[in-house]
Simulated assay, not measured.
Amino acid sequence: MANDSSSNPTRPLKGRGAVSNLAGRFVDQVSSRESDGWETTLEPLERIETVAIEEKARSIIATNQSPDLPFSQSINPYRGCEHGCIYCYARPAHAYMDLSPGLDFETQLFFKPNATELLQQALRKPKYQCSPIALGTNTDPYQPLEKDKQITRRILQTLQEHQHPVTIVTKGQLILRDLPILAEMAQDNLAHVAISVTTLDNELKRRLEPRTAGPNARLRMIEALSSAGIPTAVMAAPIIPALNDAELEQILTRAHAAGAIHAAYILLRLPFEVAPLFRQWLQEHYPERAQHVMSIVQQSRGGKDYQSEFGSRQRGNGVFAQLLQQRFKITCRKLGLNERKLNLDCNKFTLPPQSGDQHSLF
């Protein structure tokens, strides 16, 4: 499929993260718009509307055996994410849909209306073994589309019905809608939540994560969740050299004051198409420091934009990465973060028979 990059000049659109519709790596042909010298400027970009596309999924629980991930099961109710975070490592997945990991990822969104039915089927399989299901491992389960589709809410209700443990990572205020469900699950040690706080700078947030809740709103989310008895963590991610790395201690301190009891961080990851998209974004928004940012990134990634090896992909290597890890550990120790283990209860899981069930004849 040819990718028409005619709407592909690298300049920012209001409310969008990517500054182009960069072609995915599986596209055979790419067309681009070039100046022939007759016009003074390219015509302005039209506003790009968000499109919701129904996807009838065939399965809903994804499994992994990655040694550096704290979960083995996950559910992603959506493909693509309107939040528009330029650094999102899920962007390359849109290339498998013959769409761009750039603006398409933020505007061509797929939702799974049969998610709860598939979940019920998966939980009822005789060989199913209960372990916490993570929501928000690829795209945000509380992105704006959730307000209308309510797929995440129905998944939560299903998990609550069967006393199945769940973990959530989000930066969406919509999670507060489901506060009663999460609070009840937390009373049975069946839920904990992590709120992503990338920066406390509103201007940087606006450029980096254009359609997300602001920094103060995220701190209030931590406070509300924690006050409701839900074990809450702060995810300082990603840490971007020379952009937000100086904020690490302040993010942890403010989140702890709001009620967070756990913390984690991830060094900027730039797999596949994310790297050129991020470089474009840097040139548009921070051209004076773009070279410096990428220099430190490569120093922390063995001279490359990214290394995918387990263990190092989350933390990086080299002097900057080592200092970042030390700063994180010292601050957590000072604040008393990560002292309590969050082991959810898998023993309560029950799936009673439903009317219409048939027993095996053999």
Rank of each mutant, 00 (worst) to 15 (best):
A115N: 09
C85D: 07
Y128S: 06
N76M: 09
S72N: 10
E43F: 02
Q73W: 00
L69E: 10
L159Y: 03
S131Y: 01
L42Q: 08
Q129Y: 00
H164Y: 13
Q108P: 00
Q73I: 07
T158K: 05
Q65A: 11
K147W: 11
T40D: 14
T40E: 15
T152N: 06
P141T: 14
P92C: 06
N64W: 01
R47V: 12
Y96Q: 09
P44E: 12
K149L: 08
A90P: 06
I53G: 10
S35R: 04
G136M: 04
L99W: 01
C85G: 05
S59D: 14
W38Y: 12
P70C: 02
I75W: 00
F111L: 02
K56M: 14
D98F: 06
K112M: 04
V166W: 02
A115R: 02
S74H: 10
S35A: 07
I53Y: 01
G37H: 02
L119G: 07
D36E: 10
L135Q: 06
E106T: 05
F111A: 03
F110I: 12
G80F: 00
P67Y: 01
E117Q: 13
N138I: 15
L156V: 11
M97F: 13
Q160Y: 05
T41Y: 07
K127I: 12
P132F: 01
E49D: 11
V166A: 10
G80Q: 02
T40C: 09
G37M: 02
H83C: 06
P101D: 02
M97A: 14
T137E: 14
H162N: 15
S35G: 13
P165R: 04
T40V: 15
A115Y: 00
Y89C: 04
E146K: 02
E34A: 11
V166C: 06
F111Y: 13
F111S: 08
I133Q: 07
T107A: 02
V51R: 09
N138G: 09
R153K: 12
E49N: 12
